[in-house]
């Protein structure tokens, strides 16, 4: 199914009659037809399939790693323990501190879900990052939002809202200015920018790869410009490597920011 959906003939068909370069409309490169249940709440398309894979692959990997857990890890257990160590050392400990270890499972699953969803941008026959549709980043950002507000309310009761909206050490009269700004930045702009950062990064990378693919195909078809076509192909390869890095970096930054927000709600003094 995947190979039919990402058929390059679609791109060729989208080109103009005169042999000029014509880029496919945006709906052609981000909107996928439903495999079944079109128009229903259970409509299942490529994005849903990638999201399911992003959910199931970490579950299977961690189950395989933990099935025969030994004190001296080897094989797949070694790999998965390294990945947990990475999240612990690079995300949880710098951003929250030792008392943030209870949020490690959530951050690990978040990291893996986003990373695998992003990786499908460069996996052949798929070439579509699941996070280039707003639904996935929005839901993840809402999860982070509910999480950090919930942590703040749980540990500091209503004192969290007071700390967040009325930061201590500010002259009384300035609260007229500070409180609306703090409310906007903490409760509205944080989830919005979390979602938009992931979404726009992945969509931009996807459009970049589509642009260079269309350019390469068109220049190869035109013939005389085959040298420029080679350059364009080299750029396509380079950007594929770059997007491979971006896929990891965005997953890392999303988990890191979620951890920073949870840490801020847990220790509001700083």
């Amino acid at each position: 199914m995947l190979s039919v959906l990402s058929n390059p003939a679609l791109l060729l068909a989208a080109e103009g009659e005169g042999g000029g370069v014509e880029f496919p409309p945006i709906n052609l490169i981000v909107k996928w037809p439903a495999a079944f249940g079109d128009g229903q709440w259970y409509a299942f398309n490529k994005i849903a399939l990638i999201s399911m894979i992003g959910m199931l692959v970490p579950v299977i990997l961690f189950w395989l790693a933990g099935r025969k857990a030994s004190l001296v890890p080897k094989g797949i257990q070694n790999v998965m323990e390294t990945s947990i160590d990475f999240v612990e050392d690079q995300i949880v400990l710098p951003a929250i501190g030792p008392d943030g270890m209870r949020y490690l499972p959530m951050l690990v699953s978040m990291f893996f879900f986003i990373w695998i969803g992003n990786l499908f941008e460069v996996i052949p026959t798929s070439h579509m990052p699941a996070n280039a549709r707003m639904a996935n980043p929005l839901l993840l950002a809402l999860t982070a939002w509910v999480m950090f507000i919930g942590v703040g309310l749980k540990h500091h009761k209503l004192g969290y809202l007071k700390e967040a909206l009325f930061p201590p050490g500010v002259p009384k009269a300035l609260y007229l200015l500070v409180t609306p700004i703090e409310f906007l930045s903490t409760f509205l702009i944080r989830p919005f920018s979390l979602a938009v950062r992931l979404f726009a990064n992945m969509l931009a990378g996807h459009i970049l790869l589509v642009t260079f693919s269309v350019l390469t195909i068109t220049l190869m078809v035109l013939g005389p410009l085959v040298i420029v076509g080679g350059l364009s192909f080299a750029m396509l390869v380079a950007f594929t490597g770059f997007e491979f890095m971006v896929a990891f970096l965005q997953a890392f930054i999303f988990s890191l920011l979620t951890a920073v927000y949870i840490g801020g709600a847990l220790h509001p003094a700083h």
Binding site: I26, Q90, P94, A95, S193, V196, R197, F199, A200, N201, L203, A204, L249, F252, I253, L256, L257, V260
Partner: peptide
Amino acid sequence: QTTMFLGIAFTEALALIGFVVFI
């Protein structure tokens, strides 16, 4: 490095909002 990535994420958000406006 960790702090640098955090700062990049915050700074980059402005350019990405510009990209969304472009779309």
